[in-house]
Design a protein around this nucleic acid. Structure first.
Lengths: 196, 196
DNA sequence: GTCTATAACGGGATAGAC
DNA sequence: GTCTATCCCGTTATAGAC
């Protein structure tokens, strides 16, 4: 069973999902290495030993967290783009979906994906890279269309990388208690890149 | 003795500096938690116990690494800006210095600063935040000047954050073996933000 | 499917000799 | 300033009862 299979059917085995969601928060807050299997068990009301009925190793939990975060975001982005009627709306979707995922629903899992990459074993990386590439391919398509329509500059491959960097970095400084909503932030970041 | 004092005089105690540099590489490659004091000792030809003559705790080494990375970069940026003759040259300096530091000289230490923040104790954070704020203040000044000269858009506070995010992210994908030099990359990233 | 108990190991840090 | 030896603790993972 591949990484993707496990997470495209969230209904299967709700105990697993419950654990993955709890792990996402713990890994984000404390880091993967500092989070013990006892912490994980505690979070879902299990003894540490019982975890190993659901996952073979602690790392398997980490991979499941990352796969969930990126898959869910890709799905949302795909659906939103499909509904958009023109290049401008698709471009806007990139910012809104990415930020609402990163600063909202999938915050914990995506932060883990961004900051715990080094803890993923070489064996598990390829599967996750496939998922990431799928997400970035969506971005590339939309940016190419936007450039063709004169909405953004032509250097779209570098543009994709700089924009993704900008958006990722927002988790470091954005405060939901501040005056700026996530959607407002998306609009202002979009404005910075539009040629008008 | 404060964090800054220790690192503004690199001559004092070259054993310390040797250790900090080696630690930067290990922390970047393996992560702080996965790097043991035995690894650190090995890297400089010391037994693990001997490290504790130079530093009281492992975390003190982490803080020294971060302080070194950010201080050295701030110094370089300050010096380069001082030599620049107009807003356009100062703006350009932001990109060139940041990237040559992040992808060159101070790569390891700066990556540790970006990716191991969670491992810094609450007690040590304020000192590092002061150093980071000093660096970002330089950026803000230059961007404000550039906006006043019509070189970039007016939303300079958000612009600072998005640009720093873009630049930080470059460590994730830039390959020095590729066709693109660091200076060329800086120019192309600058071009993406210029209003022409 | 979960619990208890524990194996097997490696971690940071200290003490005292040199 | 460095080494050796070691303390003490927490870690992941397993085994077998229930």
């Amino acid at each position: 069973m591949s990484v993707q299979d496990k997470n495209n059917q969230p209904e299967e085995n709700s105990r697993r999902m419950e654990l993955v969601r709890a792990a996402a928060k713990l890994f984000r807050d404390q880091g993967y290495e500092r989070t013990t299997v006892r912490d994980l068990g505690n979070a879902v009301g299990l003894q540490s030993g019982s975890l190993f009925y659901h996952f073979r190793t602690k790392e398997e939990i980490l991979v499941a967290v990352m796969a969930l975060g990126i898959s869910a975001t890709t799905e949302q982005l795909g659906a939103t783009i499909a509904r958009a009627r023109n290049p401008r709306d698709k471009l806007s979707a990139l910012f809104h979906v990415h930020l609402s995922s990163l600063l909202g629903d999938n915050q914990a899992a995506l932060e883990v994906m961004l900051y715990e990459w080094r803890s993923v074993s070489a064996a598990a990386k390829p599967g996750l890279i496939v998922l990431r590439d799928r997400y970035e391919a969506l971005w590339q398509e939309v940016l190419d269309e936007a450039a063709a329509a004169g909405l953004v500059k032509q250097d779209t491959r570098l543009l994709r990388r700089t924009l993704l960097g900008s958006l990722h970095w927002s988790v470091q400084w954005y405060k939901s208690e501040g005056e700026l909503s996530v959607d407002e932030l998306a609009e202002r970041m979009l404005a910075l890149v539009l040629l008008k």
